[in-house]
Design a protein around this nucleic acid. Structure first.
Length: 421
RNA sequence: GGAGGAGUGGCUGAGUGGUUGAAAGCGCCGCUCUCGAAAAGCGGUAUACGGGAAACCGUAUCGUGAGUUCGAAUCUCACCUCCUCCGCCA
């Protein structure tokens, strides 16, 4: 959500933002709705003023007949007020509806583009591992080493279902622990976050109303999160923090659920695109300062890169183009990790910042040094998303004899240096 | 699942239909006093939206939403949250 005053003063910025993000949005329609809503508020306020002053008069008046007449007059006025209120409520609803659809302004450094194919590579780290043999894909590796059971996964959980088994499970847990340990060492507060949450958390983080299709809903009207970002930001809803406790940094683990609506037939095999997984996510709230957001955005990216570097995984960082960043995001980097069997990079991390887009919706503020309350800024980035990261980890570390070398940093958590059968 | 109780400003807490946006206390800010501090005294101290060049004015807000009424923190209904007890349970 943007500040309507900002939109009134800079309609062309919003127009350009929508175009760059390839999001259909009619700025004039919003401004019209804004004007209409204000006109109607003036009408309603005027009638209420009359009602309030007359009511007070009625309370003081002695003469019974005069009192009766005033009450009668107010009864009439209330009918009119009811009609005007209805108009005002409708206008407000329309206005808010449009406000929720208004995209945040992307940073000038965000490249133009029509799809993720137009994302710009920033850098690569490491080198493609070279194999003296034909590298297996992760599905084959998992089968050969009995580390996963896709057949029964589908039998039990349906399409995109999977069981992880044996060392794959230990490896997954090791990754969570590794990420948790590394980031809590940097001052990030570990959180084990709920994944079953109320609707307001999705609206607050900017996933709703437009993203309902991608989310599972329960018969109790609650929803399953696709990322801990939703519940961690929700944790701070309606809070007024003090400036000296900012930035607030969290490293949160949660189950994640995604319907993957509209991606039928895409990545249908293996662990790449699943309905249910676990993820460790970095979430940060900071003061309302662009440079602070930028600084922390780079920090979140650097944190994840450091994790991958310690794991020894070849990856690249891409700057997402206009079409590939979300409604509320100002700028986004993806980290893509090398998948040898496919001869390409696959997205494993996504780092974005929002300015006050989320915090306006969440009513998350802080009091600055002057005592004025401001909407905070928010950011987030993946730390490790399993099992997707397992794909690159297994494939990049496969050996000629079919075994898997375990990165040194994970060995203390898993208690072995190689997986073989 | 069953039975009760409660949600008021930064905090504690009064208030059951008519100058109550809301007593009082605490906290916080300013001033006086003081060499300085403490104490004491005086004054100030919510948010959002709208109108206005501004001063300022209006409207809304006592968990949330509807309703009754000329008028609601106060009455009615629904929901949310918390507490106590019983049951069930990883």
């Amino acid at each position: 959500m943007l500040d309507i005053k900002f939109i009134r003063e800079n309609p062309s910025l919003l127009r350009d933002a929508a175009r760059k993000k390839h999001i259909p949005f009619d700025v004039e329609k919003l401004l019209d709705a804004d004007r209409l809503r204000r006109e109607r508020q003036v009408e309603v306020d005027a009638l209420r003023t009359q009602l309030n002053t007359t009511s007070e008069e009625i309370s003081r008046i002695e003469d019974a007949e005069a009192k009766r007449q005033l009450i009668e007059a107010m009864r009439e006025l209330k009918k009119d007020l009811g009609d005007k209120e209805k108009l005002f409520t409708d206008a407000t609803a329309e206005f808010e509806n449009l406000m929720y659809q208004a995209p945040n302004i992307p940073d000038p450094s965000v490249p133009d583009g029509a799809s993720d194919a137009d994302n710009r590579e920033i850098r690569q780290w490491g080198t493609k591992p070279s194999f003296s043999f034909v590298p297996k894909d992760h599905i084959t590796i998992l089968r050969d080493l009995d580390l996963a059971d896709f057949e029964n996964g589908i039998k039990v959980a349906g399409f995109r279902g999977y069981f992880l088994k044996r060392e794959a499970v230990l490896l997954e847990i090791a990754l969570w622990q590794f990420a948790m340990r590394e980031l809590s060492g940097k001052g990030y507060i570990p959180i084990n976050a709920p994944s079953l949450v109320r609707e307001e958390n999705f609206t607050g983080t900017g996933y709703f109303p437009q993203g309902k299709e991608d989310v599972y809903q329960t018969q109790d009207g609650t929803y399953l999160v696709g990322t801990a970002e939703v519940s961690v930001m929700g944790m701070l809803q309606n809070e007024i923090l003090s400036e000296d406790e900012l930035p607030k940094k969290f490293v949160a683990i949660s189950p994640c659920f995604r319907r993957e609506a509209g991606s039928h037939g895409k990545d249908t095999k293996g662990l790449y695109r699943v309905h249910e997984f676990r993820k460790v996510e970095q979430v940060v709230v900071c003061k309302a300062d662009h440079m602070e957001s930028v600084r922390l955005h780079e920090e979140l990216l650097a944190n994840s890169e450091e994790l991958l570097q310690k794991l020894g995984l070849h990856y690249r960082v891409v700057l997402n183009c206009g079409a590939d960043i979300g409604l509320g995001q100002v700028k986004k980097y993806d980290i893509e990790t090398w998948i040898p069997s496919q001869e390409k990079f696959g997205e494993t991390h996504s780092a974005s910042y929002f300015h006050d887009f989320q915090t306006r919706r969440l009513n998350l503020k802080y009091r600055d040094a002057d005592g004025t309350s401001r909407f905070a800024h928010s950011l987030n980035n993946t730390a490790v998303a399993t099992p997707r990261l397992l794909i690159s980890l297994l494939e990049q570390n496969q050996q000629a004899d079919g075994s898997i070398h375990i990165p040194e940093v994970l060995q203390p958590y898993i208690g072995m240096d190689v997986i073989r059968r």
